[in-house]
Amino acid sequence: MMSSETELTPPELSPDDFVRIPDDRFTADTVAIVTGGGSGIGQATSIALASNGLTVAAVDIDEQGLAETADMAASFDADGRIVPVEEDLTDDDAVAAAVDEAADLGTVRYAANIAGMQHIASFSEFPMEKYDFMHDLMLRSPFLLSKRVMPHIEATDDGVGAIGNMSSVHGHYATQNKPAYITLKHGLAGLTRAIAAEGGGTLRGFSVSVGYVLTPLMVDQIEDTADERGISEREVIEDVMLGQARTKEMMTPAEVANLFVFGFSSHAKHLNGADLLWDGGYTTTYE
């Protein structure tokens, strides 16, 4: 087990964190859209895809975070590049503008719907205005972005591309005090299958489900869960988060990013309408 100081500090990214997959479509002329590109998993995925030679339209409302993402990719001498796209994903017109801006950069073939948030509260105490915001960000926005991206993929010479959705172990089962997050992650499973159903086999939809990932969002969640349950942050990590897992270690953002790289690659052509579940045994084992 890591020290308490390490547990609450997201790891720094490095060039060696990312898998490189040779792929004929991983070129500077090919564009991948990544939402939530200003921090956490979205930031790592943007850098991972740029490291594989793609042009990445990193979308976020956080201008400073996007600049950090682009600067980091450049400092890693990534073969591709990251173009910051500052837009509010809860605004329909902004989502459309983000896709249009990405299309101006090259051929859009890939999109990663990663942007998300968490709010810890019981059903009886959950504020509906918070639910509405989470819904717009985590389900409506991925639906609309996918709707806008699919015609671009279909218009390519071979119709090959993929849309990956960031799900969770909470898209497979439920725990207390996360009713909105759980509801929306289950909804992403339906979106993923709907994309696959209409994608003709070459335009694929898939999701990525992981356990707890050490991101800035997770640090906040640890603190909120500790307050909600009246226990220490260490108890949250060891008993609540890692208690059920067989792999007693949180994932890193880069490890999740590598799953999106694989999912977009030609090696994953049979991954369609399905989920990449890398959860350390959370949902498949119990004591």
Rank of each mutant, 00 (worst) to 15 (best):
M1L: 04
S3G: 07
T6Q: 15
E7L: 15
T9Q: 06
E12H: 11
L13K: 04
L13R: 03
P15K: 10
R20E: 05
D23A: 07
D24K: 14
F26T: 05
A32G: 01
G38N: 03
I41S: 01
S46V: 10
V59K: 10
D62G: 07
Q64Y: 08
L66V: 08
A67R: 14
T69Q: 00
A78W: 00
L89V: 14
A102C: 06
D104L: 05
A115G: 06
Q118V: 14
E125A: 15
Y131C: 09
D132G: 11
F133S: 06
L137G: 04
V149S: 05
M150S: 07
M150D: 02
P151A: 09
A155L: 05
G159E: 01
I163M: 04
G164Q: 02
M166V: 14
S168A: 13
H170K: 07
I182R: 01
L184H: 04
H186F: 15
H186Q: 11
G200D: 04
G200K: 09
G201L: 09
T202A: 11
G205V: 14
S207Y: 06
S209D: 12
T215V: 15
L217D: 13
E223W: 02
E228F: 13
I231F: 10
I231W: 14
I237H: 05
G243H: 06
G243F: 06
K248G: 03
M250K: 03
P253I: 12
A257S: 02
N272M: 05
D275Y: 02
D275Q: 14
D275W: 02
D275A: 08
Y286I: 13
